[in-house]
Design a protein around this nucleic acid. Structure first.
Lengths: 204, 204
DNA sequence: AATAAATTAGCACAGTCGTGATAGAAAGAG
DNA sequence: CTCTTTCTATCACGACTGTGCTAATTTATT
């Protein structure tokens, strides 16, 4: 029998090459040839795993989502009540904001995915948002002084989770597009100031 | 002497064709040929007014900025104290949020400009932000019950202007990218709820 | 070693891209 | 009318795009 490779792993490897190309050359620069070259393969090999460009792009979208979710999860699991609550929470939410080169790249990738899906809708665009909304509910739930799992949450908690979600998205947008006006330190400070208001407002 | 055309006006006409193409085909679709065709001219004619693609893109950026600013200004001048303050303010800020097709197109255009300027920096990216920040200061200044021009504004006003600016950017982002989760009615409601909180918080 | 299936490389095709260059058309001044 | 300058159309060039296709290569099994 023939040589056999782990398809899923190879796809992942090729997708990561695509990520690098997008970060380097922008959404429009991720052609079949550039991605293949970045991965060190021929275009034929690439097209054996992604028979069409659309398939590749959809896979890139899922990989990006996975990355963000994994980082959040790791951060939650790493802390065992050692950090002050507000600091822990701020750290979590900062994972969603392009404050350094790594997170900036992720944001760029997400932008590229949305740009692609404007031409032809790609799978898995709203899943990321749902996960983030859940995170914000948990955060406000905890900040408001509640314990345990956030089930049947107070409407005020729900409302301020929504506000906080919107606020963090706004911070991310400004951190990305006007870094001169909103440098990382300023973003961090504004986030913490706002978070400090939340317990009083959300708990009543 | 020869036939003479109003250069500035012709440039504007061509730029608007470019806007339509970007809205229809995305940032990557705005090529010299497609824009020329959309405008009903030959590529040679287009390149007579924009000798390089970069020039065209920079001009598109300025046209987009002008549009948003003009609409805001018109709205301010149209109202002469007839609307309740909160309603006037909400209407102003909604001009920055992609709630209908028109504003959605403007947001798309702005996204295209930022995508372009990732490859090679374009002039006039941060001017838009400065104008918006000024608007938010005015808004919070008025909401907090102050009169006249916002000079030497209270630090609390400054802070909540910043918060509101971030919040509105977040609303715009979500209205654009997860319209199913955050439909226009919801965006409007959330904006007004948040605005209702501002006077109390910003005035002390 | 022979075989057969999985994998890879590479070319071909019909497009599109941005830009340089040049020839022709248009139109007001003399 | 002719001239002169502005404007417009068009072709050429090399490079790039996604995809179809085929031939070569690899490799585990018989």
């Amino acid at each position: 029998m023939p040589k056999v490779v782990d398809h899923e792993q190879r796809r992942r490897e090729l997708a990561e090459a695509a990520l690098r190309v997008v970060v380097r050359d922008g959404a429009a620069g991720a052609s079949v040839r550039t991605v293949a070259a970045e991965a060190g393969w021929s275009t034929g090999a690439l097209r054996y795993y992604f028979s069409t460009q659309r398939e590749l792009r959809e896979f890139v979208a899922t990989v990006v989502n996975e990355r963000v979710e994994r980082r959040i999860r790791e951060r939650v699991e790493a802390d065992r009540g050692r950090l002050p609550l507000l600091e822990l929470v701020a750290g979590l939410l900062e994972e969603l904001i392009p404050l350094d080169e790594r997170r900036r790249e992720e944001f760029l990738l997400w932008l590229a995915v949305t740009e692609w899906s404007r031409q032809e809708p790609l799978a898995g665009a709203e899943e990321l948002w749902d996960g983030q909304r859940g995170l914000h509910v948990q955060v406000v739930f905890a900040l408001a002084g509640f314990e345990g799992e956030p089930v049947n949450v107070d409407p005020r908690v729900q409302t301020w989770a929504e506000y906080l979600h919107v606020f963090v998205d706004g911070l991310a947008t400004q951190a990305m597009f006007v870094p001169a006006r909103m440098p990382p330190e300023r973003i961090r400070a504004v986030l913490r100031e706002f978070l400090a208001e939340v317990p009083r407002l959300a708990a009543g």
